[in-house]
Amino acid sequence: MTDTVFIIVSAAALTYATRFGGHAVLSRFRTLHPRVDAALNAVPAAVLTTLIAPAAAQGGPAELASLALMAALSTRVSMLTAFLIAAAMLVGARQMGF
C-alpha cells in the first residue's frame, strides 16, 4: 500500500468514525442531563462560529462589509438570497481594490 492510499483509507475510516461515534455513544443513554442537552443545542452555533471568526479577524473592509451585509440580510430574506447578495458585494468590492 502506498502512503497516499494509506492516508486516504485511514482518513476516510476515522472521519466516518467521528460522524457515527457521537450518536453511538449518546444513544446508550435513555435520558439526557439538562446540561448535556444544553451543550448539544449549542453545538451548531459554537462550531460554525469557529469556522468564521479567524477569517473575519483577518478580513479587510471588503470581507467585513460582506459579513455585516450577510448578518443583516439573513434576518430578512432567505438564506440563499442573502448569500448571493453578500457574495456579489464581496466580489464587487474586491474587484474595485478594497
Binding site: A45, L48, T49, A86
Partner: peptide
C-alpha cells in the same frame, strides 16, 4: 465563511445564542 455566517444567524432563536457565539468566536 459567508455561508456559515448565514447558518449561525439561523440559530439565533436558541437559548444563550449570543454568549455562545461570542465565546466561540
Amino acid at each position: 465563511p459567508l455561508y456559515f455566517l448565514g447558518m449561525v444567524m439561523g440559530f439565533r432563536q436558541r437559548p444563550l445564542w449570543l454568549p455562545i457565539v461570542a465565546a466561540s468566536g
